[in-house]
Design a protein around this nucleic acid. Structure first.
Lengths: 112, 112
DNA sequence: TTGACATATTCCCACATAGGAATATATATT
DNA sequence: AATATATATTCCTATGTGGGAATATGTCAA
């Protein structure tokens, strides 16, 4: 069986590099689809489709304004990612640990 | 074209829920494959294959010890994920912004 | 060397999905 | 109503990949 649906899992949704670029653009400011099209240089349907996935998985919200649809980052869902990664903080935070890891890596080179 | 190779992108590698579970287990302590097999209850080849992907993408390191191969989390690569998510910190950190977002969401409900 | 233990690899298949092209829908303007 | 603008959706295809089963490789002990 392949991977779980992109539209159900934020981690899966941001696995696509283009979707990360969309989020990074939206991080600057709320934006309509066409601004993203111009900024990213992709076909409009491509942008809309990626936005559709991001919307369905909850990583962005949108609101209408005239003919445009403005997309914005949803912080809550991105916090999920951040919190998960934070679980491993101790593996990079402490200098002592880093030294220990470096030593283990050297040992690994011999045993590999 | 489907998604880019899992083994080239940490974000893609952790898109698979089972691989996140592997990393979470290894977050507790360095561990040989069989410990993971017992802990997760998956077939050994499945565990080895997921470890293979995590290793190739650099999210874990390994070293031999007798017949066993001990796997450990690689903090540096996980920091990459953490740093990326941190980019959106302001979207959940400030109370004022949260209030603003809530207002925008209410407006969205009307216009949707 | 033989056997037991520990881990990795190969082969196959089903399936989700990104991209492309064309088209559909929605909203504002005249 | 007709047109222009803005965005979404549908259909198609190629391809990466997770799971299962079987097997291979590697390492220690007797």
């Amino acid at each position: 069986m392949p991977r779980a649906a992109t539209t159900l899992d934020p981690f899966n949704a941001i696995a696509e590099p283009k979707r990360r670029l969309v989020l990074e653009a939206l991080a600057e400011k709320e934006m309509p689809v066409n601004d993203l099209v111009g900024r990213l240089g992709w076909p409009q349907p491509m942008v809309s489709k990626h936005l559709g996935v991001l919307k369905e998985v909850g990583l962005v919200n949108s609101r209408r304004e005239g003919r445009q649809r403005l997309y914005q980052v949803n912080g809550e869902k991105l916090k999920t990612i951040h919190d998960w990664a934070k679980m491993f903080e101790r593996f990079w935070a402490h200098q002592l640990l880093r030294i220990k890891e470096r030593a283990e890596r050297k040992h690994q080179e011999k045993t590999n």
